[in-house]
Design a protein around this nucleic acid. Structure first.
Length: 591
RNA sequence: GGUUCCGUAGCUCAGUUGGAUAGAGCAACAGCCUUCUAAGCUGUGGGUCCCGCGUUCGAAUCGCGGCGGAAUCACCA
């Protein structure tokens, strides 16, 4: 809690009472817990060595001092070593007024931040893990922007490498010219089908070799299919016209498919990099490193970097046949990006299974003389697991992104129809609302969990639409909206508020919570965590619903109260919408 | 085996730089629609915060040691 104005008052009090200077960070002020009365609580224990008095009398000294010297203070009370301070209504009403200018009082970090997320392979459709990546990336971008940073969103498409050759080869061998049009399969799903087929056929071949008396080890390393795939990769790197044109054709199918999924999720990028366009730079960088003697060539011509001095291992940078590996292109991409944008910070949204990779990447970049290496931050997020463990494509347990999105929207439709809330809307309007609700359930479900933690998704239990969920928050918004619409229809003017307004307890709670928004944004931005925003929106919604239940707004006791409450809830509406937009979640006007 | 991360209610998760009697949702049970949208509100039950030791006025939070789980240590990406 950085309520600076209060902290300054306490510092003054300590100085006045005990002639002692104290640092801001040593003043512990927090929100007062619900079971006690007060707005803020000062923990006096750390101050005892200065006051040389008991906790109670120290708290009393400070309380009295503030009472006499700080005009905003209404009253105080002391429980054990805790000094609870209540501020005057006027103080909170002034705070509330600041929400008239919601968007222009943000801390401006003025940093340029480049953030990479999504980064799909072009050999299979997106799944639930990718959804988490995309949602986190998009949301963190929005949060950083809100906190005053310039944000560049980039996607790095992994469009080359042995895995792409596998699906190309399988399609060439067994595809019979199948296309998305001919099969009415989404392009990325079509390619995925052949990637799986390759794996199946590869297993068959290995089994065949083993049955002919070869060892498992030998069989694995000597399949004709793998050899063909490797030859294809070499041809690709040499620019073989036939292979390149096949590659372009198949990739274009995948991009069309991805585009649909990105659109459904509401995600976009400022810049898309393709590994096929950056990996050569990576190779050059490795070659330079070789000249400088930073990396070394082994007898089989493969190139390695030795990181044993840094507690890590040796790492391959180029294969013996000269083709590049994952980290090769990542080196090139990082340098290219840095030179292009000169950001203060580069964030990579990549799963925690690649923690080691990023350790290596930063080290190698540094060794090669790139000081910006220190500005790279790996936003390492946890895996999405199923109740019995990891998703495995071989076992067909992968939760497909497109299917899941469709299911969520369909569930939203079913619930809405059951409740009969959208009777009288056009089909277009209805579909738009179903989509907003279904996606909010999905997005909120994923984003409310701390990114760095693994999370469990149970496909058998559908994602909830009640309780701590996206639709609940949307519903709250819609309720507010409905009241404001009625107020508008009756031409009630509620933009002004009198400082003498007598706040009731719940109204005060609502203002205090609203007042935290700025802090919450800053915290979410510094910890790169959409979960902080999500949990805050839930608090907002819960508080409002209690208020809504306990107090009438349009039929309040008198006009002053009606107007005040309308103003208050209109700020709730704005903040709810604003906060949810940071999660990439749209708010329907009715539902 | 080395390194990193994690362990909070039956389940899914919160718990802000160490602060007061550890919180929500789901699931279960019991109430609340003639009144601003019941996708809501209220209540009941549910805990060895993995275990132990330490630091501290104070530990779910920090340190050390265990136990349990995950990831990684690829000429996959």
């Amino acid at each position: 809690m950085n309520e600076t104005y209060l902290i300054q008052q306490v510092i003054k009090a300590i100085k006045g009472l005990y002639q002692h200077d104290i640092l801001e960070k040593n003043v512990q002020i927090s929100k007062t817990r619900k079971e006690f009365s007060g707005d803020y609580t000062l923990v006096v224990f750390p101050l005892l060595s200065i006051s040389k008095k008991s906790p109670e009398s120290t708290a009393n000294d400070i309380g009295e001092y503030l009472k006499n010297n700080y005009s905003a203070l209404e009253s105080f009370n002391i429980v054990k070593g805790f000094l609870n301070l209540s501020l005057k209504s006027e103080f909170w009403i002034e705070k509330l007024k600041l929400f008239n200018s919601l968007n222009d009082n943000l801390s401006s970090a003025n940093n340029k931040v480049l953030i990479e997320f999504s980064s799909p392979n072009t050999n299979k459709p997106l799944h639930l893990g990718h959804i988490r990546n995309n949602l986190i990336g998009h949301s963190v971008s929005e949060i950083l922007k809100k906190a005053g940073n310039e944000v560049v969103r980039v996607n790095l498409i992994n469009d080359r490498g042995i895995h792409i050759c596998k699906s190309m080869l399988a399609w060439q061998k067994w595809g019979n010219g199948e296309t998305p049009a001919s099969s009415s399969l989404k392009g990325d799903h079509l390619i995925g089908k052949y990637y799986v087929l390759f794996d199946v056929e590869l297993k068959n071949e290995i089994a065949d070799l083993v049955s002919k008396g070869n060892s498992d080890e030998f069989a694995k390393n000597n399949t004709s299919l793998m050899k063909e795939a490797q030859e294809m990769l070499q041809k690709w790197e040499r620019g073989d016209i036939e292979i390149i044109s096949l590659w372009k054709k198949m990739n274009s199918w995948v991009y069309e498919g991805f585009e649909q999924t990105y659109n459904a999720l509401g995600i976009s990028f400022d810049k898309i990099y393709y590994e096929s366009e950056t990996y050569l730079l990576g190779k050059n960088i490795v070659a330079e490193g070789l000249k400088k003697g930073i990396v070394e060539k082994k007898t089989d011509n493969s190139i390695w970097v030795n990181l044993t001095d840094d507690g890590l291992d040796e790492k391959l940078l180029l294969r013996a046949d000269g083709t590049s590996v994952y980290i090769t292109q990542d080196l090139g991409t990082a340098i290219m990006r840095y030179n292009e944008y000169k950001p203060n910070k580069m964030i990579y949204v990549v799963g925690n299974e690649q923690n080691y990779h990023f350790q290596v990447l930063k080290l190698v970049l540094k060794k090669l003389g790139n000081e910006f290496s220190d500005s790279i931050q790996h936003l390492s997020y946890g895996m999405v697991e199923l109740p019995d463990g990891k998703m495995k494509s071989r076992e067909g347990t992968v939760v497909d992104a497109d299917n899941l999105i469709d299911e969520m929207i369909d569930t939203a439709r079913q619930i809405s129809v059951e409740l009969g809330k959208l009777d009288g809307f056009s089909d277009d309007e209805k579909n738009q609302i179903y989509k907003a609700i279904g996606l909010s359930a999905l997005k909120y479900y994923i984003l409310k969990v701390d990114p760095k933690k693994n999370m469990t998704f149970n496909p058998k239990e559908s994602i909830d639409f009640n309780g701590n969920t996206g639709p609940f928050i949307q519903y709250t918004y819609v309720r507010i909206n409905s009241i404001l619409r009625k107020a508008n229809d009756s031409n009630i003017e509620y933009k002004k508020v009198d400082n003498n307004y007598d706040l009731n307890e719940k109204e005060l709670e609502l203002i205090k919570l609203l007042n935290q928004y700025q802090l919450v944004i800053n915290e979410a931005a510094s910890s790169l965590s959409p979960a902080i925003i999500a949990n805050y929106t839930y608090e907002l919604a819960k508080e409002f619903n209690q208020f809504y239940h306990d107090f009438s707004i349009l039929n309040a006791e008198n006009e002053t109260i009606v107007k005040f409450r309308l103003l208050l809830i209109s700020f709730y509406k704005n903040v709810l919408k604003d906060a949810m937009s940071l999660l990439g979640i749209e708010m329907p006007e009715r539902m």
